[in-house]
Amino acid sequence: MTALLDAQNLSKLYPVKGGAKGSLLHAVDGVDLRIEAGECVGLVGESGCGKSTMVRLLARLIDPTSGRIFLDGGDVTAVTQSQFVASPERGRIQVVFQDPTESLNPSFRVFQTIADPLKRLLKLRNADDIAAKVYRAAMLVGLPRELVQRYPHQLSGGQRARVGIARAIVVEPRLLILDEPTSALDVSVQAVILRLLADLRARLGMSYLFVSHDLNVVRLLCSRVVVMYLGKVVEVAPVEQLFANPRHPYTKALIASIPDPARRGEARPRLDGNPTSPISPNPNVCRFQSRCPIASAECRTIMPELRELGGGQSAACHFA
């Protein structure tokens, strides 16, 4: 069965200025990622693991160094990023960015902000058609009609977050990429926006890629989780299976770091040592071995491949 999104062997390497000749920073390195129609997939990992680069690659904001991205079976990497901007496919993948204040044009009223994708991507010109779609999107995200004529600085943080979501859904995308959409909001507002996102997915039938540092949020919203470490996927599993039985040492450490009063006093996995450099890393060495509590000589000579462990769970560890 064809997945909605299928990224195959996706890589993004950046030349290092001032480094040794030929040095490359491996931001994303040989990643495979599938998202089914109607599915919500969580993407987690520490800062610097490659999550943001994955967002930019999948949204076609940058070109991959190698690999392919298929949307409904069609290769969206067959054209360059600059060509994709003008493609009809552009409207099928939309992004809700991390900081709604920074991602909104301060000189645009809310109406203009939501209408802009309709004009650029759907090429709508009829004022009545545009207005109808703008007000429908505002209604779907719970934005009062009277706020649509305001500027971003006249809105609260939660209202600006709703504008960002409305702008993304107004063109009726198949896939919505959510790049830590609640991290800049107060905790009470976060809960409201998360409920809104869950409701929108059910009503509109979109698929989500939800990128977050907050594993509790991922557990609530997502059905499957992808864990990244230094540009590599180290574990993939259904959400409850991942939390009940993580198989990679890095995943175990991430889950153990979640604050939980019930575990007070319990010994937790510690990650000592220094992270491996992402600049031209040895392809025959596990990226995590320098911090891994169970690393062996095998980990320093053979890169573990992501392998199926049963029940939809995979891990890239010799001891999984």
Rank of each mutant, 00 (worst) to 15 (best):
P181I: 01
C286R: 05
R270V: 01
K232W: 06
P15Q: 06
G265Y: 02
L306M: 05
D63T: 01
A316L: 05
P304F: 02
L178W: 04
A137M: 02
K17H: 08
L178K: 09
F111T: 00
N9F: 03
A37W: 09
Q154L: 05
V76M: 13
A27G: 10
C49T: 09
R287M: 11
K232T: 10
G205Q: 12
D32M: 03
A138T: 04
I294W: 08
P106H: 08
D260Y: 04
G50S: 02
L43Y: 11
L155Q: 04
I258Y: 10
P238H: 05
A316H: 14
C292R: 04
R203Q: 15
G74D: 15
V187H: 14
R145W: 01
P278D: 08
C299R: 08
V217R: 14
I169C: 09
L61V: 06
A253H: 00
F243L: 11
M54R: 07
A316V: 03
A131V: 00
H213R: 10
C286E: 07
A262P: 01
R268D: 00
F243K: 07
R307L: 10
K133I: 00
T2L: 14
T80I: 00
L196N: 09
Q8N: 13
L140S: 10
L271M: 07
L209N: 12
Q190K: 13
C292S: 01
S52W: 08
M1T: 07
D272G: 15
G142P: 02
S156V: 05
V170A: 06
S23V: 02
A202N: 14
L196T: 11
V226E: 13
P283C: 11
R56A: 15
G273K: 02
I193G: 15
V85Y: 13
Q94D: 12
L221E: 13
G38R: 08
F210Y: 15
R219Y: 00
P173K: 04
L10T: 01
L220R: 15
P238A: 05
R136I: 02
P281T: 03
D129G: 05
L4V: 09
I169F: 06
N216T: 13
D29P: 03
R160N: 12
L4N: 08
Q154E: 15
M139A: 15
D75F: 05
M1I: 06
V31A: 09
H153D: 09
S296T: 14
C299Y: 01
P281K: 11
G311F: 10
R34A: 15
L43V: 05
V110M: 01
G73Q: 10
T65V: 08
K119C: 10
R109A: 10
D6G: 03
L271D: 00
L204V: 04
I165W: 05
D186T: 00
P117Y: 02
